[in-house]
Design a protein around this nucleic acid. Structure first.
Length: 861
RNA sequence: GCGGACGUGGCGGAACCGGUAGACGCACGAGACUUAAAAUCUUGCGGCCGCAAGGCCGUGCGGGUUCGAGUCCCGCCGUCCGCACCA
């Protein structure tokens, strides 16, 4: 049987091979993309990393996936753009500066150098000639230009807004950085401060950002739903309730937004937010009211997450007239559940049909009037006690609306109030404008100069970039830009008088909102983008990253493309045509007897008899195996990609992260799994070498092998296109098993080497170094990374004969083999002639025969 | 509370439009080779009954549609994720 000569095949040495092939690709400049290349374009992009210091396995997974797509598409004849850069501004650099007295810029660039080396050791097919770092003045000068252009187009505004202010660190905190009302670093009680801030007017695009989601059919449904909810469109009516007697200095009326004008006759009260201007006016000379407002604010920030928050109200003593019946007045409350940020900061309370209003009304004895009667309920007896009814029905107790449906009542009220000039139909969005001002040093300076005479004046384009000063100190809390007088004090570009630079920098989400566009022509000196390049490459064909960016980054980028379209920097509106959100890499946790976390590197696992036990490599003490969790420094359940690559090689690491789980789900990093991947690398190496030198003569073994190779090829094609890498891996295993079997059976060298060649091309996108080494072993010319994808021989995919399962009353009783082209009658005849079928029929004759061609036969008796 | 996803062997998972449930891998058992170990190879591996042939049960639970349901419908249970006083 085994006619393969006993050749000593050396083990594949990844440590030696991987750098060698990386150099070969570099030397051939294989991944440097030309914009002018006539082949069809394909833009693959993974979310660029923050240079935190070292890459983690999550990066390995993310970039391995992108690399499979990039290498595959390149083999399929596309001009692939696959760039990489650094999301390099951000708070950690400033924290490092404070803790370790290092310059943020030096810290960042040192991290970039380290991480670039790590990424290069992965063998990714990246075009490093297009590398960008957002902290580079060559990048952020263009961002400043975009800011100025947006400003000119009215897409940027400046206004006051409330921010979370950390009085110890002297900085604004994002909501996520406020924990239980305290700053996440300082632990100080966070204050709400009014600050003048720059805003991008993303809400101007709310309607378009929402409706265009429907066209993003290559985005996960989940992400589209999240964005839809985030934008939060609701249709309703803005209604003015005039005050019976307006206090001095207050408006004559309170405007309310409602999505249920049909229930207006069920109104019992009006409630305004604690931050409503009317509340402030009233509080001016009323300390009790001031106290209440303070209380509301504290509750708002300190216990944002409370779901049982009690409804609190303060009766102002004011009343408003009902817009549909001026003789009817309603009391005005200040209520803690009304948000100034949404709608008009005022609501009318309809207790019968809104649970929140009902809770409030019941607490303050305001009663309720049901005005919508559910279908099948008797209006005469329909009452509400402690559960509001928010469904549809017939109008009752509602004067001219009685008997209408809720929809009809909505329209009737809207028509009437609009005619009277006391209301307008309004579409309200939850989406708010994007505040981009940050009181921090390590970010893109906002290119504005404040002049006492001229106000905020844009820095002239010719003066860009506004560069960050290098010599800064973080000895004193707060933004060093404010203390840097040499940097800060400049003449007004308009009038020449003494003026001051804006010391706020931009939110780092701005940096990542357009980097993918910059990649299309990163060499441009005097413009952010080149229209030809940007319109050619965008949208990104496949964008890959974590779900944690489902809303902010992806929504901001969609806004940015629209704003760049308005300012002429892009002809495209949607940045990402295809989006894929990959799962995390998770790992078991380990705890020693003292309860301290133990890192996986210090663990030896034992699986004797199927019982998993862990021991400490140093002490030998048994370690408790804990739950599988997201890798985190605090639980020490992290593995370092450098260690993995050093001991197993990049291909093994890449293969493992692609193999074990569907890419959108979490993958559990296990030592056993990595070892399995490492063994497979050797197995491929061994089989490919055997195939290259076999002197098998059994031609009967050839046909099944060719069939297996082309089946695997077709299957991998389909699954790479759909990013189902775990299935690709399974197809490769199947082909390897077939090759192994064929070699044992004596397959000829010609066919074995041809099948091995296909195998090598299949693994090339996933394990590129091993693939090159195998390609050479097979005596093939050039680089497999540059070889065109093999063509599937479709004829090999069709079977001559097919084995159909035969069911009797839905239970499988036999298998019958028929020619694959057999028609239903022939199949039926063959089935009924089958011995096992006849035995199972026990003399009965089928009442019905269902033949599903190529699938199954079911006999009903 | 609202919205979404998911639930299949010891484990990760596969199963396309309703058509052989458990592909492929990991782990584990038995055996071969070896002084030994590693590596490699052979072989078994959902449960129950059986020497076997074979049979019965089985995709979170309960019902339904269908010749046929992991897949579709209704109702539960559980897990995860997102949003959350949104008027």
């Amino acid at each position: 049987m085994t006619s393969t000569p006993d050749r000593a095949i050396e083990r594949y040495n990844a440590k030696d091979a991987e750098p060698r092939w990386q150099q070969a690709w570099d030397a051939a400049r294989l991944f440097e993309t030309q914009n002018e290349d006539p082949r069809p374009k394909y833009y693959v992009l993974e979310m660029f990393p923050y240079p935190s210091g070292r890459i983690h396995v999550g990066h390995v997974r993310n970039y391995a996936m992108g690399d499979v797509v990039a290498r595959y598409k390149r083999a399929r004849g596309f001009n692939v753009l696959h760039p990489m850069g650094w999301d390099a501004f951000g708070l950690p650099a400033e924290n490092a500066a404070m803790e370790r007295k290092v310059n943020p810029r030096e810290w960042t660039y040192a991290n970039i150098a380290t991480m670039k080396k790590q990424l290069q050791s992965m063998g990714l097919s990246l075009d490093w000639s297009r590398e960008i770092a957002t902290c580079d003045p060559d990048y952020y000068r263009h961002q400043q230009r975009l800011f100025l252009d947006f400003l000119e187009k009215g897409l940027v505004t400046r206004r006051t807004a409330k921010v979370n202010w950390d009085p110890v660190d002297h900085t604004v905190l994002a909501n996520e950085q406020v924990i239980d009302g305290r700053g996440w670093r300082s632990g100080a009680l966070v204050e709400q401060r009014e600050l003048t801030q720059w805003f991008f007017r993303i809400s101007d695009f709310a309607e378009d950002l929402l409706s265009a989601l429907d066209g993003l059919d290559r985005w996960p449904e989940k992400v589209r739903v999240m964005q839809k909810n985030w934008i939060g469109r609701s249709e309703g009516l803005e209604v003015r309730f005039s005050l019976s007697s307006a206090p001095a200095g207050a408006a004559e009326a309170v405007t309310v937004f409602t999505t249920r004008p049909d229930t207006l006759f069920g109104a019992r009260f009006l409630a305004i937010a604690a931050d409503h201007p009317l509340a402030a006016t009233l509080a001016a000379d009323r300390p009790d009211l001031q106290t209440f407002i303070e209380e509301c604010r504290r509750l708002g920030t300190a216990q944002a997450a409370i779901d049982t928050a009690e409804k609190l109200g303060f009766d102002t003593g004011l009343t408003v007239r009902h817009p549909l019946d001026p003789s009817w007045t309603l009391p005005v409350y200040i209520a803690n559940f009304v948000l100034m940020e949404y709608g008009t900061g005022a609501v009318f309370g309809c207790p019968a049909h809104d649970q929140r209003d009902l809770d409030f009304a019941n607490k303050y004895g305001l009663g309720n009037t049901p005005v919508v009667c559910p279908e099948g309920q008797d209006p005469a007896t329909f009452t509400i006690t402690d559960t509001a009814y928010d469904g549809d029905g017939r109008m009752i107790n509602s004067a001219f609306l009685d008997g209408m449906t809720t929809d009809a009542a909505f329209s009737a009220v809207a028509t009437r109030l609009e005619a009277e000039g006391v209301a307008e139909t309004k579409i309200q969005f939850r989406l708010r404008d994007w505040g981009v001002s940050r009181q921090r040093y390590w970010g893109c300076p906002i290119p504005i100069i404040h002049c006492d005479a001229c106000g905020p004046v844009p820095v002239p384009v010719a003066d860009l970039p506004v560069k960050l000063p290098d010599a800064v100190s973080f000895d004193i809390p707060g933004n060093p830009l404010e203390r840097d007088h040499a940097w800060r004090n400049v003449p007004c570009p308009k009038c020449g008088a003494a003026a001051r630079r804006e010391t706020d920098t931009m939110d780092t989400f701005v940096d990542s909102s357009w980097y993918y566009a910059r990649f299309t022509a990163p060499w441009l000196q005097d413009a952010p983008t080149d229209r030809g390049a940007v319109d050619h490459w965008l949208a990104v064909d496949q964008y890959i990253g974590g779900v944690e960016h489902a809303i902010l980054h992806l929504l901001y980028s969609r806004f940015f493309m629209r704003a760049m379209r308005e300012t002429g920097w892009s002809g495209v509106s949607e940045p990402f045509a295809g989006l894929f959100t990959q799962g995390m890499v998770v790992h078991e946790t380990y705890k020693d007897a003292a309860g301290a976390w133990v890192p996986p590197a210090e663990i030896r696992l034992d699986n004797e008899g199927g019982t998993r036990r862990a021991f400490h490599v140093g002490t030998g003490a048994e370690i408790a195996i804990g739950p599988i969790e997201k890798m985190s420094k605090s639980k020490k359940n992290v593995v370092d990609p450098d260690d993995i690559i050093a001991s197993y090689g990049a291909d093994t690491a890449r293969w493992f992260v692609l193999s074990d789980s569907p890419p959108e789900r979490d993958v559990i990093w296990t030592e056993e799994g990595v070892q399995g991947a490492a063994r497979f690398v050797q197995r491929i190496w061994r089989l490919v070498n055997l195939a290259a030198h076999t002197d098998g003569q059994t031609q009967g073994a050839d046909a099944p092998l060719r069939k297996a190779a082309h089946k695997a090829l077709a299957a991998v094609e389909e699954d790479v296109e759909r990013l189902r890498f775990n299935r690709c891996v399974a197809h490769v295993y199947t082909l390897v098993n077939a090759l192994d079997e064929a070699l044992r059976a004596g397959s000829t060298r010609k066919v074995a080497a041809e099948a091995a060649g296909i195998l090598v091309q299949l693994i090339a996108p996933m394990m590129p170094h091993l693939a090159e080494e195998c390609w050479t072993a097979l005596g093939r010319d050039g680089l497999v990374a540059d070889a065109p994808w093999p063509a599937v021989e479709r004829a090999l995919l069709v079977e001559d004969e097919i084995t159909l399962p035969v069911q009797i009353n839905g239970k499988k009783r036999a298998d019958v083999t028929v020619p694959s082209g057999a028609d239903k009658a022939a199949v039926e005849a063959a089935v009924l002639a089958d011995e096992a079928v006849q035995r199972a029929l026990e003399g009965r004759s089928p009442k019905k025969v269902i033949v599903v061609p190529g699938r199954i036969v079911n006999l009903v008796v």
